Simulated scan of single mutants.
Amino acid sequence: MIELKTPAEIQRMHVAGRFVAEVLSEVGRLADVGVNLLELEHHVRGMIRQRGAESCYWDYAPSFGKGPFRNVICLSVNDAVLHGLPHDYTLRDGDVLTADIAVSIDGWAADSARTVIVGTAAEEDLRLIRATEEALEAAIEAARPGNRLGDISAAIGAVAQAYGYPVNTEFGGHGIGRTMHEDLHIPNKGKPGRGLKLRPGLTLALEPWFARTTDKIVYDPDGWTIRSADGSRTAHSEHTVAITEDGPLVLTRRAPEHTAANGAAGTLSTKDA
């Protein structure tokens, strides 16, 4: 069932979205050589607790996962791209880190993801991240009343094609609102003019993700972490977007940052870790 949100409900989602944006900015700031993924996980737990938010991931048990997810953020490194289970891994120079988080505040959810480079950035990794970011902006631009769902998918696919990256359609965008995953699957490739007509009040999580040289995926033994099947590096960008009479409204937009590479790490508080 597709639920259209009122302007007041969209504003409540925006509250959650601003917090999600804050968390992802903080993770990007802290991700540095020598930082352990579990330190980032526990730091984010502290942020969620302090804000009085609720993790959409904790105890989440969808059909594609192995048992309940017992973390509050997905952290995926290098060839891992989706649903990365935080574990005892210390970040190294040149690692590509994707952070993906969804929280609920006062019953309304927002979901967003970003990919950053730890330490020294390789141009080919920056290019891959840039492709997902441009694809996301193209998808947002297509999320207008009167367009169709296929216009969003086609916009993402066109950017991937221009960059020469293959596209997996098993996992993509989705509806969002009272829960993290609501009806609507939004593939990252499709034909324009097809599918559901977009109407004001639709709220969507748009999330282009690409692997450099394959559209095939494999799962880690943990039953969650999804990697490129050939070991090529990956990137993922996601925003929660509301379709309004005036066009798309990005609910998880972060403040501008100087580069996709990290380059300005902070410090983790021992009380949060």
Rank of each mutant, 00 (worst) to 15 (best):
L204S: 01
S63W: 14
E22I: 04
A122C: 11
V20H: 04
R144H: 13
C74A: 15
G231Q: 11
T240P: 07
R130W: 15
W108D: 10
V81N: 01
L251R: 10
E257H: 15
R130P: 08
V250E: 07
R114Q: 12
A205P: 07
F19A: 03
D93K: 09
P166Q: 07
G175V: 05
L268M: 14
D100Y: 01
L97I: 03
T213V: 05
H258L: 14
G201A: 08
L149Q: 11
T115W: 03
I10Y: 03
G146N: 10
F64V: 10
L251D: 02
H185M: 09
R227Y: 13
V33L: 01
A99N: 11
G195Y: 06
T6K: 07
Q161P: 02
I10Q: 03
S228Q: 03
G223H: 07
I48F: 04
A211T: 11
D222N: 15
L37W: 05
F210Q: 04
L268T: 11
L37E: 06
G266P: 04
R45L: 10
G146W: 01
C56R: 04
D79K: 08
G193I: 11
D100P: 01
A80S: 14
D95F: 06
L149F: 01
E182C: 00
S269K: 11
P166I: 05
I129T: 09
C74N: 13
G65Q: 05
R51E: 14
R178T: 07
L268N: 08
V159R: 10
R49I: 12
G223N: 07
S153D: 09
G107A: 04
A255I: 02
R178S: 01
D220K: 10
T234F: 07
R18V: 04
A229K: 00
G193Y: 13
A264N: 06
V250F: 05
R254V: 08
V96A: 15
A31N: 03
M47S: 10
G164E: 06
E182K: 01
L24Y: 06
H83A: 09
G17E: 02
Y60G: 00
V116A: 10
R127Q: 09
T179D: 09
S112Q: 02
R227P: 03
D111A: 06
L204K: 00
R70F: 00
A264S: 03
R49L: 13
P62W: 00
G65N: 05
G201K: 08
S237G: 13
R49K: 14
A229S: 13
A211P: 10
G263Q: 09
P208Y: 15
